[in-house]
């Protein structure tokens, strides 16, 4: 995230932002304590997670289908898990410490193996 830090007499009046969409430069993924893990095998593609995610951190493929979590921006709020209507849930929260050093595929197996 390279941003130019402006002096007091250079900033835009009233904290106004003229280049909308610049929140992409702000990687909020580092805030996470917990993370959602996604199970495509039980996902019913209702897209509730995409609707409710406050950070647009649900990845969508070219066919408009749920394609995973964007961990660069996901803050780990858990709203997607709360909203997931499939039974069993296709999204589950785990601690970041549990995820450390593991691939997404490894985590999926670990979290959802009991539900197969």
């Amino acid at each position: 995230m390279a941003e130019k830090l402006l002096n007091w007499d250079e900033v835009l009046i009233g904290g106004t932002i003229k280049d909308p969409g610049n929140s992409k430069q702000y990687e909020t993924g580092s805030w996470r304590v917990e993370r959602p893990v996604w199970n495509p095998d039980t996902c019913i593609q209702c897209m509730f997670c995409w609707v409710y995610c406050p950070d647009s951190a649900i990845k969508v493929d070219e066919n408009g289908k749920m394609a995973g979590i964007d961990y660069t921006f996901c803050k780990g709020c858990g709203i997607c898990v709360e909203q997931c209507p499939s039974k069993p849930k296709s999204l589950k929260m785990i601690l970041e410490s549990q995820a450390k050093g593991k691939t997404e595929e490894e985590l999926r197996k670990e979290v959802f193996s009991s539900e197969k």
Binding site: L5, L6, W8, D9, E10, V11, G14, G15
Partner: peptide, 8 residues
């Protein structure tokens, strides 16, 4: 950023 905005 806040300090610069308040002084502006």
């Amino acid at each position: 950023w806040y300090f610069e905005h308040k002084m502006n």
